[in-house]
Nucleic acid binder design. Structure first.
Lengths: 241, 241
DNA sequence: CGAACCATTGATGAGGCTCAAAACTCGTGG
DNA sequence: CCACGAGTTTTGAGCCTCATCAATGGTTCG
């Protein structure tokens, strides 16, 4: 059951070399430059490949260098809940730093690259990244709380819009076009994260498209009218056309 | 708007003295003994008194010594989401350790006592409690995820039962009777936490009572048939009587 | 004793889930 | 190159759970 989820790849390329690829100073850059001071092990994953499963012994943290992951928890009777979608700059495995085993599943949604940070080595790096680990833990809590608020108080359309705007903002900080969203997850996964069914997600997207706020083409979504989306999110019943 | 939320009280009593009050070795004891090595400032709060509000400058962490708190986040347009109910052994303000201002509201639901841990002093205590802070942050994330799973996948009755069983387990670790739950929150607050309306909470409790699983008397709830509750939680449609 | 506040119960309706079917995408192999 | 099949997305129809609105009774506190 616990096959080796990842395959170890070549050592990281030269320390300055990794930098020149980047067009801009991303939010992720600060942490990355820190990590490059200790040569991290690099792993590449294929779409739908698991990085780790809940219950597996935890030896490392993983820094997401590229690609998109979903993290999820499972109940005893098999119900799944996706707790987040992780992209460049995120740390996987943080939620169980204090435990010997992972507390969630991490699955690559597309081709991805992660840098492994063995716990043993993590001790050496302290306290330089200790405060950053703490900050990322606290940040995860605040992010979770905001989604709990959204899921608990917003309607279906509003939740979907909130997701699109959130993703757009994350794209912006990563130097990507915030108006052109390339989703890496299925409607079912999106619905699971938002506590909706896949049909409801689809219908919400169709409604937004009918209002001319977005253009939907499968998993490619273009934001046409961000202000309109924000109005929907704010609850203003758009009477358009 | 930002009145002084708390009133400073007398210095803590002697270090060994605080211990003799405890009948048993609680889960909370380990952290408490640690904190007592630095004399913490003690604050007492009255029911419905705020410990801090979101946005207020953050100078300290607060250890809950007694009483019950609710922590909540607010959206721009006034929607509230209760993120948890905190009891003895919990730390308030952890979610914003990396920030200059609080990220949530903390409100005492009954008479409560907290120990203040100023950030300045926190530096001295490191690294002795550093690992504990990290563990509590990660633990909060896992707890949030489990509730996101419950709220996202369970029906109304199941959510209420999950809450009762969770509270019962917490009572047990605190040395209280796990079958006799004294709720400190209103039905509306409970519903908010579970993403239900207060009426739905009431009805769920009434149904469980009708099935003979609990006895409800206002905020006093006695668990009569824990196995039955677990069956409801597991989704087994109880066809009783 | 009155005034809030809280809890309970009922009636009604809407939002979203379930079930079902069809169109579409994509990788595989004939 | 096209056909096939699995997985995904879209759309429709009907139903069910839970939110909403409303009324009553209980409790606490000034």
């Amino acid at each position: 059951m616990f096959q080796n989820a990842i395959s170890i790849q070549a050592a990281p390329r030269g320390h300055a070399g990794g930098w020149s690829e980047d067009r801009q100073q991303h939010a992720a850059s600060v942490l990355e430059s820190l990590l490059l001071r200790w040569p991290p092990r690099v792993h590449r994953l294929e779409p739908r490949q698991a990085l780790f499963h809940a219950g597996q012994p935890r030896h490392s943290l993983y820094y997401v260098r590229s690609g998109c992951f979903k993290t999820s928890v499972l109940s005893e009777d098999g119900r799944e809940k996706i707790t987040g979608f992780r992209m460049r700059g995120d740390l996987l495995g943080l939620d169980s730093v204090d435990m010997p085993a992972h507390a969630c599943d991490a699955l690559a949604l597309d081709a991805a690259e992660v840098w492994e940070l063995p716990c043993a080595r993590l001790q050496d790096m302290l306290p330089e990244i200790q405060s950053r680990v703490t900050a990322m833990l606290a940040g995860e809590i605040r992010r979770d709380w905001r989604w709990m608020l959204a899921v608990g108080t917003l309607g279906a359309d509003q939740r979907v819009v909130a997701f699109l705007l959130d993703l757009s903002a994350r794209f912006a900080t990563l130097g990507l076009d915030p108006a052109l969203l390339q989703l890496r997850m299925t409607r079912a996964e999106l619905g699971n994260f938002l506590s909706l069914t896949l049909e409801t997600v689809t219908r919400a997207l169709s409604r937004m498209q009918a209002r001319g706020m977005i253009e939907v083409c499968g998993r490619r979504i273009r934001i046409v009218d961000e202000a309109g989306l924000r109005a929907v999110l704010a609850g203003e019943d758009a009477r358009c056309h």
